[in-house]
Amino acid sequence: MNLSAPTADQPAAPVQRLAPVETPTQRVIREFSRSWLAMFGLVVLSLVVLAALAASLIAPQNPYDLMQLDILDSRLPPGSSAASGMTYWLGTDEQGRDMLSGILYGLRISLGVGVASAVTAALVGASLGLIAAYAGGRTETAIMRLVDLQLSFPSILVALMILAFLGKGVTNVVLALIIVEWAAYARTARGTALVERRKEYIEAAECLAIPRWRILFRHLLPNCLPPLIVIVTVQIARAIALEATLSFLGLGVPVTEPSLGMLIANGYQYMLSGKFWMSFYPGVALLITIVAINLVGDHLRDVLNPRSHS
């Protein structure tokens, strides 16, 4: 046998130089910033959030202060001037409220309701999901049956049911949104936790006798986070849309402090007479917000999905 059989001293094929080590966070940021569409969404979203946060500073008028409203200025088309000299760039509603100010303040409520419900639902749902994955047995069965039951009914129906029990109002809407949303987090958290728990790095950590809580929070939780982060973004968008829908149906926030959905509902009756701006512009604001969140969430899913990069 004198073929090209190798010997120990024969050099192996040249080893390729490895790229500098990159942390996962750096990778996500790099890959995320590669999509101009997602970056555009992120910029728009940041502007929307800033505008909502600074509503009281940049709005021409405080729309909740009835003293500032002039009933004589009601239902003016966009671009009209007020008696006081200010311009209603987006027109006014039936109470003479500046639409631009109303939208900025409404954005604040819509975003607040969306974020508050999504984050609370995430905390509740993810905890229950992790508990289900760890406890197993009857606890797991009970929680997951509840999740299945919840998910087999569409969100609007569950929300309607809860508002029918509790009555209208902001707190009840937030509560309804949390109850609508928690199941998605629970299912995802349990699913990822079950998968991650079987992986070698957890076994390795267990072999090293690392304390259980440390394995849970330092090893397992970070690896379960990516899908949860994606769901949070998507759910915030869904919550905002659902809140707007409920408010539009007259089941949501009170008329005195209208969210975007309420503004649209208020202007709805004037639409048939051609006074479109009262419903149209709040709708555009709603749309921009939701699309921006979805653009970011959509791409975040691609970047965070462990299957999409090898």
Binding site: A241, G261, L287, I290
Partner: peptide, 11 residues
């Protein structure tokens, strides 16, 4: 996916 259906209805 993003458009709230009630607003589309209005449009």
């Amino acid at each position: 996916f993003s458009l709230p259906s009630f607003w589309v209805g209005l449009l």
